[in-house]
Amino acid sequence: MVEASSVEIRKVNKYYGQFHALKDIDLTIPPGKVTCLIGPSGSGKSSLLRCINFLEEYDSGEVLIDGQLIGYETPGGRRMAPRRLRQMRSTIGMVFQQFNLWPHMTAQENVAEGLIRVRGMRKPQAMERAAEALTRVGLADRMGNHPSRLSGGQQQRVAIARAVAMDPRLMLFDEPTSALDPELVGEVLNVMKALAAGGMTMVVVTHEMGFAAHVADQVAFLEAGELVGVDVPSRILREPEDPRIQSFLRTYRERNVI
């Protein structure tokens, strides 16, 4: 078991030109727990997730990984040295909505690439490690395939293996099942559940309320760039106090009643 990271988000603001995308966000993500970010589209949940590994630059406030500021030397100060930023990012795994597998490499090569280039591993060891990671997500028989030969669910599992093989202490998921056909969602969620059970810190932007209800330790609801509420799923999803959360959940239920 590798140790799990914690994330501390303090007074984070983000602008796209005039548009105020994130407004004074405060959120604590405890180590070894699963935090789901939910809310309507355009609410800023993906932007917030991407601020955690500084793929998106926040304009003010602090994002601390295990107490260490990411992106800037000091709060509001100079940008962090690229080498240090890369070093921090290499311990944060990220899984994208569109998988973002590299199409010119096989599944195994996709997973091994980071181990070779970032961890400086030799190719045979990296490939062996990649094979183990792919076996863990149930793709032992698909290692030699290029992404175009894999289903969406398989591609996303390769992407998870690619992140996990780096031994991250924190995993970020940006709507990992939104691009999948409904029947392929389950296999990806199962891999994520197994990761959660292993004690990984996970931050998951999702529309899968079932996953949020059963797997998350806490759920944060965002709307229009504001953090409206954070609580354990049983409270925030069953008896929310805020009318904005109530109306979001009502719409969600209406849409999912057959």
């Binding site: 290499s90 994208f96 973002n100 590299w102 010119h104 690439e113 980071g114 280039r117």
Partner: peptide, 30 residues
């Protein structure tokens, strides 16, 4: 090339040089 291709490389902590020679150029040339 989709932006996500380089984002995946950045997120994993790759150097810009590696993301060019390993991810961007092989695909762009093909």
């Amino acid at each position: 090339l989709p932006k996500g291709q380089t984002e995946a490389a950045i997120a994993i902590g790759m150097r810009p040089r590696d993301s060019w020679t390993r991810i961007i150029l092989p695909q762009a040339v093909a």
